[in-house]
Amino acid sequence: MEKYSIGHSFFLRIRTYPAVGVLIAWLVIFGIFSVMGRQFFTLSNLVGIFTIVSELGIMAIGVAFLIISREFDLSVGAVYAASAFIFGLLANTGLPSPLALVITLIFASLIGFVNGMITLRTRIHSFITTLGMMMILRGVLLAITKGVTISYEGDAIVPTILARGIAYGFRPSHFWFIALTLLFIFILNRTRYGNWVFAVGGGREAARSMGVDINKVKLINFTISALLAGLAGCIVISRFLIANPAFGAGSELEVITAVVIGGTLLTGGYGTILGAFLGAFLVGMIRTGLLLSGAPGYWYQAFIGIVLTLQRYLRILVQYVEQFL
């Protein structure tokens, strides 16, 4: 009877953590790619994955907050690309790069604010609102640049702070990603605002009855989502020292996939920032692992879809195991 209680209690506790599915998937896929590709389990490759994941993961943090509050943002990839261009153009005019960074982040925040205002005022679903914003930003960016890549010619202050190599391939963006993850974990789990985010996503009327300003919370989350996408865009131009209109194409779906794989429900009210962190790593690991194992690049999206589907069934498996213990 004691053994039953211990096993039952253990699996019951596991089942309550949204990130458990992605953690299991992460361990399984990491093991598979380590066996299939000799160069996968090397420091240089793992650090390279971390570099890709840092930009994707920073966007995933903001999108996770938004999805938990029961909204979507499909414009993050376009904000990412536009922010890289704006930062590069401003710095190239001779503006100090820290000031260019601030202006770029303000621009990104305003895009998120506009997304939120249109969604909340008109009651058009955020899926449609942000899809429209994505198309507007992409179209304007292509029209202005005519698809031409620009080179970064500004000072080295912000590129050094955000993305220049340190040692063994590590970059400041890795630490920015970890710091932002810890910050938003604290906000979501340890602050009143985090409770409001869960309440808004879990039940609109219940949240309103508790005195939560639903529109204010959602508007802040839209702004956070775009702000972090803008920061990721500044990181990518600081890393490559170029900006291309194609940057971030399709990344909005990768970001949402990372968040959902991490255990966040699309219906809102449930999720973790740690899950988004692990989900971003899983997506980056799959991208790199398939290439190193010799698989054609077009299998990447199919593999992501398989993992996204299996993640749901991993949680169901945990529930079944718990029932039999």
Rank of each mutant, 00 (worst) to 15 (best):
S209K: 12
F113T: 12
E205K: 14
S69Q: 05
E153R: 15
E322R: 00
F33R: 05
N195W: 04
I111N: 07
F175L: 12
E55N: 08
T181L: 06
I237F: 03
A280Q: 03
T272H: 00
E252P: 13
G271E: 06
F170W: 06
R204E: 14
F186C: 13
A276E: 04
T257N: 08
V200Q: 09
W299I: 15
G37K: 01
L99P: 11
T272K: 01
G154T: 07
I242H: 01
G294D: 10
L131G: 06
Q319I: 08
D213N: 15
I32P: 09
A163M: 07
F72G: 08
G250K: 03
L12T: 11
G132S: 12
L308N: 08
I237L: 09
F177D: 04
A108C: 12
M1Y: 02
L162T: 14
M285G: 14
L188I: 05
F85I: 08
I235R: 10
L325T: 01
S109P: 13
Y168F: 14
I256W: 00
S54L: 03
G305K: 02
I61R: 05
F186H: 07
L66T: 13
E55T: 13
V63F: 02
G201P: 02
L227Y: 12
I128W: 04
A232L: 07
V212H: 09
S54E: 04
A280R: 03
L290V: 11
E254C: 02
L219R: 03
A82Q: 01
N45E: 15
P245W: 00
V158W: 06
N195L: 14
S251K: 10
I187M: 07
V102Y: 03
G230I: 11
L266R: 04
F113D: 08
D213P: 10
F175Y: 10
A108D: 12
